[in-house]
Design a binder for these strands. Structure first.
Lengths: 356, 356
DNA sequence: GTCGCCTGCAAATACGTTTTCGCACACTAT
DNA sequence: ATAGTGTGCGAAAACGTATTTGCAGGCGAC
């Protein structure tokens, strides 16, 4: 029972050992042709005994596919920030990788350099994370007729296959959270409206303000999305004649910058200013005070996106072309205050968002 | 000059258009056969004009390779912690990905599940991050004769191809840093000695203690490597009859736990206790006080590891089978104290480690 | 001038699968 | 018996490239 040395066991060896043709082996293993159950079983046993592993490359050549699914973060095409700085992306990648292997695919990371670079590696499908308006990467892929699933929607269109966090409900929920803790002038510290999540947050914010009779206080951060740009934008907000008493930032790093700005201005958080951010992060947990966050679910996003792109590749057009993933609020120190009795009777729940 | 629709341009089309055989096309493009420069040029121009892209799958089938390089984090085989929680891994992956594409390879992530899962995806080579003692993953790959480069050495052997941070020099440097700030009883808060970095830190620490006449104060954290286990281990240290006045942790999350433990005990950092950790992180930057770190260089590690594995794959056995990457100290709040005049004349430099 | 050598290219084969097609054989209905 | 209908399987083509081998022709040397 020693493993045969040096002799790679291919479909041919199995056929020979089983006393059938390679066609029959292929059919038996893939459940394709017209075979008796006896033959099928027999071939399978022989293949098992020989430890046969189909050659992926040959299979792909014949089948016209590669078994490769790409994953690229579109927003970084501009090279303004590093993916690795955001745990959201890392976690998304991790689960997508695991999900891919489960389904017999390999996930290849595509660094945001030259879109044409991965023309050479025939990809069966692609996951584009946070596409931007009229995304060049998406255009390129479409022209190559490669199935695409985006994570976050393509701005200005809700068409296409996508998986997204329910930012609209989440934004409303966290604004309610701030209001319930006494905030009367909540500012939105937003990333530039180039991705759907930024746009959603902005829209929901304006709508919420209109509904609650609050004057919108909007600050858009520089597009490097660092703590520094959050700091600057917040300083600008606090300089206004009627400054905000709460800030909701669409990214944790911007929120951390807001925390710094408050500190620099001598404002106590949460006593004089409430701060909350979108996306949970280690840094937020360890900031002083710890940062209340609207937690997203990158793992579910990654899983769902991968399932969807596999559906597209294998022809079983996924029934839901869109998936919306719920968010939840993680209340922490930066909004730790007595909850006020609500003026209106509306219960504190945003559709799709639950408080943990 | 409109692109021909629907007609995939293969080597055959190029041959036809150029009026030569496919053999000649292959040779011309790969610089292989005996051809006149004129023929070579001509074929190349035609190929260019037609926008010919060689089919990677076919090329791999013929060439016996796949163009795929795997990357797995071994330490997580036990499933105790998530890779995405550590920016070190994310950054390593990112740069390795970019480096792979530059060289015509694709990097596939291998989730730490079943080692045999990626038997199906023929990998040309593999990067194993932080291998453990007698690593099962490494064994599996060796039995498949897949070239391996490890990031961090395989414990108990310095053989094999590896790229590593210079933890020995780094550890000595940070111990010097603490001593220079008045620490007289420095404790080592270590992760379990299953990886080379943990072992290196432990060895260097003991050696340093022997050289400086200090009693070793060792605490080994639980292997989930969270802040919680750092907290517990530090509480144990501080309960001793003669507690430490400084703690160096081999991981940032453990160091953050130490910070929490000090806070719980009512000890002021850095006044009454100095704390430093290995690996820079966002969380450390935002902790209170901010955490002094021995910064590693995951990007350089990723780049070097990829270059090395490509060398192995392509036969050009890389002249240096080992690469040691320098570390540097990032002094921050948790060790912010007046630097004492040194008792000995030794200058504050660990070989290979420089203070930023 | 004949032999051998070198040059420039093409035909053929190999890589390991999947898939299409067709061939026997057996069985049923006439 | 004969035609018709399935059934179980194998031969062969296809996927797109790299490489090995073979085949002409030109040239120099004797």
């Amino acid at each position: 029972m020693l493993p045969a040395m040096k002799q790679p066991v291919g479909i041919k060896q199995v056929a020979e050992a089983a006393g059938v043709s390679i066609t029959t082996v292929s059919h038996a293993l893939n459940g394709k042709g017209r075979l008796t159950d006896a033959t099928r079983q027999h071939v399978r046993q022989v293949a098992e005994r020989l430890g046969y592993r189909p050659n992926a490359t040959a299979r792909n050549l014949a089948g016209g596919r590669t078994g490769l699914i790409g994953l690229a973060v579109s927003q970084t095409l501009e090279g303004r920030f590093a993916v690795s700085d955001f745990a959201y992306y890392s976690q998304l990648m991790s689960t997508a990788t695991a999900a891919a292997m489960d389904r017999g695919y390999a996930l290849v990371l595509a660094s945001g350099t030259d879109p044409s670079a991965w023309r050479n590696i025939g990809l069966d499908g692609m996951i584009v994370v946070d596409p931007v308006r009229a995304d060049p990467l998406v255009r390129e892929l479409r022209s190559q007729r490669i199935p695409i699933v985006t994570t976050g929607r393509i701005p200005d269109t809700d068409k296409g296959h996508w998986v997204d966090n329910d930012h609209r409900a989440g934004t409303r929920a966290i604004l309610d959270h701030l209001a319930a803790r006494g905030a009367e002038r909540i500012a939105l510290l937003a990333s530039p409206p180039v991705t759907s999540y930024a746009i959603d947050a902005g829209d929901s914010y304006e709508q919420w303000c209109a509904e609650h009779g609050q004057e919108p206080l909007l600050a858009v951060a520089r597009d490097d999305l660092t703590e520094g740009s959050g700091f600057e934008a917040t300083v600008g907000l606090l300089r206004r004649r009627r400054p905000p008493d709460a800030v909701y930032a669409t990214l944790d790093r911007l929120a951390l910058g807001a925390l710094l700005a408050a500190q620099a201005k001598g404002l106590s958080v949460p006593r004089e200013l409430l701060v909350a951010g979108c996306t949970d992060s280690e840094a937020g947990k360890w900031a002083h005070p710890s940062l209340t966050a609207l937690a997203l679910d990158p793992e579910e996003i990654g899983r769902a996106a991968l399932a969807m792109v596999v559906g597209l590749i294998e022809g079983t057009d996924p029934s839901p072309a869109n998936v919306l993933v719920a968010t939840r609020i993680l209340p922490r120190g930066s909004t730790r205050r007595r909850v006020l009795a609500r003026k209106t009777a509306a219960p504190a729940r945003g559709a799709g968002a639950s408080v943990a």
